[in-house]
Design a protein around this nucleic acid. Structure first.
Length: 578
DNA sequence: CTTAGGG
DNA sequence: CCCTAAG
């Protein structure tokens, strides 16, 4: 039997490519040109705001990733590169894994000489478990108070769809990859507000019904029952919102350790892919003393970093699906909820109204370190000066989303305010599928070796943590909306579903979800309802016509029986409600 | 938000 | 899986 485990990855940041900024006219390197006297910090934000849209942009600039082993860390790094040719601006996610590529396309890495530790995972269809596990390096390790890192180089990149691998980053810049074994618990620990669901050392029950099924059939009703959870169930999308929310508080604490790039070591060739921008005078050679009206500051933003992301994906997922998932996440993140922050010598510049010159960004000062970062949109809880200055360009087009987030913000405001970085330790208990497995097949068994793991502690406010799960945008940009990845029901899931439906009937999908799939975040009650529909259909057709993982006939029979029974019940109730 | 159904 | 009308 296959025990499914879940891999949770938290990408502490993504690096996005050179930004095709405002001055698209300035071809080639996303160079920006702004007049010194009246340009304001906002101008930069406009530029950077493009990052939020660049997926849609039609720009041909390509991030130049020359080799540089500088800043090479053990952690993951996700880079986003522009698509090279067409204007679709489509991206692919690339997965690095322990320095090995698992992909079948051309050269893993080319590009300016030098060996590359990060090789790509090139076989999209191989299971994550095949690659990410058993390496002995994916050791969970506490790195700081909020995340654990995977040891070994696991990285990712967002790359042109047509795979020009010639510009792979070869060095990582300290982005972190989090591997949590239990998404559920992870979620829980971030949900400090949600009336602690029971977090115990015992596996969450797959079925928590006390009711007696009309089909008091054979088996496994021995499953422990437990109280139905609090009414404030958090469905996937809610969690996502919450994440977005929690992340909002990040930048306000001035602790933007992530998503910051420094221009200090930028090189003309972009040799250091970690460098964010490059600055040079537009009036090369000329001596213009500070304050001159005509001085322009040229900035070439080589890369951006996207805030932290978390990914929850089954171990049995394919590399391809991991890529898609990450891509969706990145896409969603880039699509909105972002804000650009600017740092000068590591210090955040908060006053949008200052001019570059006033701020100290001038052509003459080649040594100042200017950094850009992408941060969650609603992070200005008490911004010093630009409260009244709606970051134009960035907010305007997305009022709706903004409002949503705002309300969420209020909901969880306390956390933002308290800025408390609580640390929780949980005895995790594998995730749903695993639980299901153990409960269904091994009711009496105990201490399944891999069952419980001590997990992370994620601070209540996970700075910059952006939700990730396959995410579908509700409004706006259809360009970003993406279908959820397909996740066929396993036989075990089917069994759980059947059992729950036998007990609850066919019209209480929310309850079914809660009882049997409460821990399966990716299964919504609609999914369950749909699955039941297909199960009924499947049960009625000949075995030859069935596809996918074969469902035991016994289960299908139960499906038909239950379906018939509950249909009948429904009729009775309709006819004789009294 | 949930259900129920069609797509 | 998605979308959506209804309740």
């Amino acid at each position: 039997m296959v025990l499914q485990k879940r891999l949770n990855y938290g990408f502490n940041g993504f690096q996005v490519p050179t930004i095709p900024t405002a001055s698209r006219s300035a071809r080639g390197r996303g160079t920006i040109r702004k007049s010194c006297d009246n340009s304001q910090i906002q101008a930069f934000e406009i530029l950077a705001s493009v990052a939020g849209n660049f997926l849609q942009e039609n720009d041909s600039s390509v991030l130049d990733n020359a080799a540089s082993e500088k800043d090479h860390h053990n952690f993951t790094d996700l880079n986003i590169k522009h698509k090279k040719d067409d204007g679709g601006g489509s991206f692919n996610g690339g997965i690095f894994e322990n320095g090995t590529c698992i992909e079948t396309v051309s050269p893993c890495v080319t590009g300016s000489g030098g060996e590359h530790d990060n090789q790509r995972v090139m076989d999209d269809s191989s299971l994550l478990g095949n690659n990410l596990e058993g390496q002995g390096q994916n050791v969970l390790e506490r790195e700081d108070e909020r995340i654990i890192h995977i040891k070994g180089n696991s990285g990712g990149s967002i790359e042109p769809r047509h795979g020009n691998f010639d510009s792979l980053p070869n060095g990582s810049t300290g982005r972190k990859l989090v591997n949590r074994d239990d998404g559920e618990n992870f979620v829980r620990c971030t949900q400090l507000n949600s009336k602690n669901k029971k977090i115990s050392g015992s596996p969450p029950d797959m079925l928590k019904l006390k009711d007696i099924s009309p089909f008091t059939s054979e088996e496994n009703n021995s499953r422990h029952s437990s109280v139905l959870d609090d009414p404030q169930r958090m469905y996937p999308f809610k969690k996502r919102k919450f994440f977005n929310q929690t992340s909002s508080s990040a930048s306000d604490r001035g602790s933007h350790c992530q998503g910051i790039f420094d221009s200090s070591d930028a090189k003309v060739n972009g040799a250091n892919h970690g460098a964010a921008i490059e600055e040079s005078s537009s009036m090369a050679g000329q001596r213009v003393h500070p304050g001159s009206k005509d001085c322009n500051v040229k900035l070439s933003i080589k890369s951006f970093k996207v805030p932290e992301l978390f990914i929850d994906i089954p171990e049995t997922a394919t590399i391809g699906s991991l890529k898609r998932t990450v891509l969706e996440a990145v896409t969603a993140v880039l699509g909105d909820e972002l804000h650009v922050g600017i740092l000068l010598q590591g210090k955040k510049i908060r006053d949008d109204n200052k001019t570059l010159f006033q701020t100290g960004i001038s052509q003459d000062d080649k040594r100042h370190r200017l950094g850009f970062m992408l941060e969650p949109r609603h992070n200005q809880i008490s911004p010093p000066s630009y409260n009244k200055d709606p970051c134009f360009l960035t907010t305007a087009p997305r009022q709706k989303l903004s409002r949503q987030s705002t309300s969420l913000m209020l909901q969880h405001g306390t956390y933002n305010v308290s800025q408390e970085r609580s640390l929780i330790k949980i005895e995790s208990c594998a995730e749903s599928d695993l639980n299901m497995v153990s409960s269904l097949t091994d009711a009496s068994a105990n201490n399944n070796s891999s069952k419980c793991r001590t997990l992370v502690a994620v601070p209540a406010i996970n700075m910059g943590a952006l939700a990730v799960v396959p995410f579908r945008r509700k409004s706006g940009n259809h360009d970003f909306s993406q279908r959820r990845i397909r996740r066929p029901f396993s036989v075990l899931e089917v069994e759980a579903l059947v059992q729950a439906v036998e007990k609850l009937g066919t019209g209480r999908w929310r309850d079914v979800k809660q009882c049997a799939f409460d821990n399966a975040k990716h299964r919504t009650y609609v999914d369950l309802k749909d699955k039941w529909k297909t199960l009924v259909h499947t049960a009625r057709i000949s075995p030859q016509q069935r596809r996918g993982e074969p469902v035991p006939q016994e289960l299908l029979d139960r499906v038909l029986t239950a379906h018939a029974y509950w249909s009948q019940q429904q009729c009775k109730h309709q006819l004789k409600p009294m």
